[in-house]
């Protein structure tokens, strides 16, 4: 079996230790880091699809993402040396007043699994912090998460802050979280709502592409 398939399959099973060993083996054998990354990403793709289809659940995604991170950590310096570029850049955070971050972290993992560069702003993030980060770090997408009906309104403030800063046309705003819906997305003028973490990653990739990343 090719080592890339082995990496992908073990990642899907969440076997972090084995994935790390296999990635190291591949590096030692002189494989192109970009190609090894492809093995990791293909594994996350499978997990993401299964998650969207309800075939696997949050624990499987979490262990797969951990395995992905362990492999990717070894590859990062090599990819930087080779001048490889991410497929886009997004900033993500849980909105102001909300500290819940499981959903946000899942989305971040799935996005990294799609090869996006993710700036994690953490929790309780103000609308200005989202927008300023997007401007300063050239992010194509702002991703906002909320758990509470009492905090989801802040997402509308993020849209307004982007308008006020004059970057609304340059930055897409993606929202998600327990109380959020398509109707709410339209109501506040955000660009996209996605129902789960894997879909959020797919949409973010498409939005980055649309903006020419």
């Amino acid at each position: 079996m090719s080592i890339l398939i082995e990496i992908s399959e073990n990642l899907q099973k969440g076997k972090a230790k084995i994935v790390k060993e296999l990635v190291q083996q591949a590096i030692d054998a002189g494989m192109d880091p970009q190609e090894i990354l492809g093995g990791l990403l293909s594994g996350m793709d499978v997990v993401g699809e299964k998650f969207k289809n309800g075939e696997v659940y949050i624990p499987e995604v979490l262990v797969a993402a951990r395995a992905m991170n362990q492999g990717a950590t070894l590859l990062k310096p090599l990819l930087a040396e080779s001048g490889a570029v991410a497929s886009g850049k997004v900033c993500i955070g849980t909105v102001q007043g909300d500290l819940h971050d499981i959903g946000k972290n899942l989305v971040k993992m799935m996005m990294e699994g799609k090869g996006l560069e993710v700036v994690d702003l953490g929790t309780d993030v103000s609308p200005e912090a989202f927008v300023n980060t997007a401007i300063e770090q050239n992010c194509q997408v702002i991703c906002c998460s909320a758990l509470l009906t009492t905090t989801m309104g802040v997402m509308g403030d993020v849209v307004k802050a982007a308008e006020a800063a004059g970057v609304r046309e340059k930055v897409k705003i993606l929202i998600g979280g327990a109380p959020v819906s398509d109707d709410f997305c339209r109501e506040i003028g955000a660009d996209c709502y996605t129902v789960d973490a894997a879909s959020a990653a797919d949409v973010a990739v498409a939005l980055c592409k649309e903006l020419g990343a």
Partner: peptide, 12 residues
């Protein structure tokens, strides 16, 4: 847990 003053939320 991370608890921030003045914020009513499930803690992270």
């Amino acid at each position: 847990e991370r608890i921030k003053p003045g914020i009513v939320s499930i803690p992270s």
